[in-house]
Design a protein around this nucleic acid. Structure first.
Lengths: 225, 225
DNA sequence: AGGCGTTTCAAACAAACGTTTGTTGGAGGT
DNA sequence: ACCTCCAACAAACGTTTGTTTGAAACGCCT
């Protein structure tokens, strides 16, 4: 629990050092490609410390992800609660709902790289238990789908679920871009060298348009530009 | 080059068998978690065959991905060419552009799982060279951004690029969902047990709304709900 | 038939993997 | 003073990884 001046950290400091190193390396290289040896080397701790403090590699992954996503989701729900308390029985503006969903993830710290991990874990199967993963987002999905249904009473619930899903995809793409794709040239390389707040406004605007689009008809038809 | 009746395949058949097995396993488990031994066992070929035919694991990955994404992108460009030839100088309807972008990926064969690989590789770093990856999509991005700019002349090019990016995210999310997230309960489990054409219509509708949304203001300021 | 280039095969390689072990050092309790 | 517990450590465990090797089996041409 104490820290001496030689640079050696003791006690629970080792835990957080492992978590920090794992979080960074997972975000950079992915889950499956990151070894415990890399993590412990980066953290400056002994190899066995991981199994001592976390039991196994899998539980370390779980804890890293929970520590990353937990505060974000709590902030999301708090944002929604706050806006709802101010609105009484009235439906929340669509922009408010989407902001509460996107802002906590996008604004997370000055370190843009960090949130990339969440985007990655969603795409990597097997490593992280789907049920554990779902438990972390179950409450979020229910709350936001409920608010969206109240704000968009004319949109069928299935359509709302679909568009919520699509918006999550757009948001993950934004998180990916914010992390910076090294070595990726082309029109998207310069795209993310902008303030986070601008990315937030843009993805929310895109989402508003998507949610306000007319419900899909039963068949294909003409459409004006 | 020939196939005898004992089940043993020779010649370039081994190549495609390896490619098929790798494609399937990569999609199911991810790139980093799939070993050459798994691939060769699934393909029913010798372990050394991979290094003989492809040189290395990395080049195998490259070829699997190119074989998967090449036809899709070619179909995308063909779709755009066809519609443009019919339209003359007139801008293409937004729905057409987004359909040409989404349909080839979503409709790929009856095997829904297959296209999940593309969605995964986009999220997995280091395994697939970013520059190689970019080369596969450079032409696509340029063509579609050009058509979008012609259809939406009032939208700043940067805004178009952003929304193109977001739409890709929504499309990837759709591909992910179509592959089926095993063990994932909740409101999204039943979402994708629908015809591909319906998913296509829904994601295109969402994208149309997103692209038609008013452009975001250039700086931070008030915003009405 | 015979030789030749191509392809398949079992076996082995060093390296890296996650995990377990037994021991050591030091702070806190009695 | 002693004992106890927690934390860190080096070392080794048995697997699994991607890759290489050398020989065997194949189809094909002269």
């Amino acid at each position: 629990m104490t820290t001496d001046e030689t640079g050696k950290a003791k006690g629970r400091d080792t835990r957080t050092r492992i978590l920090d190193a794992a979080e960074k390396l997972f975000a950079e290289q992915g889950l499956a490609s990151t070894s415990l040896r890399q993590i412990t080397r980066e953290a400056g701790v002994n190899l066995a410390a991981v199994n001592y403090h976390f039991g196994s590699r899998e539980q370390l992954i779980h804890e890293v992800f929970a520590r990353l996503v937990g505060p974000v989701n709590r902030e999301r729900l708090a944002c929604l609660d706050e806006r709802r308390a101010a609105a009484g029985d009235a439906p929340l503006p669509l922009a408010t709902i989407l902001e509460c969903l996107a802002a906590p993830a996008l604004r997370r710290g000055g370190d843009r790289l960090r949130m990339r991990l969440a985007a990655r874990v969603l795409s990597e199967p097997g490593v992280y238990s789907p049920t554990d993963f779902h438990r972390l987002f179950e409450e979020i999905a229910e709350r936001f789908l409920g608010e969206l249904a109240r704000t968009l009473p004319d949109l069928p619930p299935a359509e709302i679920a679909w568009r919520f899903h699509f918006f999550i995809g757009a948001l993950l793409q934004a998180l990916h871009g914010l992390a910076g794709v090294k070595g990726m040239p082309g029109p998207f390389s310069e795209l993310y060298r902008v303030p986070v707040e601008e990315v937030l406004r843009r993805v929310v605007a895109f989402g508003i348009g998507g949610f306000l689009a007319p419900a899909v008809p039963g068949n294909t038809g003409e459409d004006g530009p």
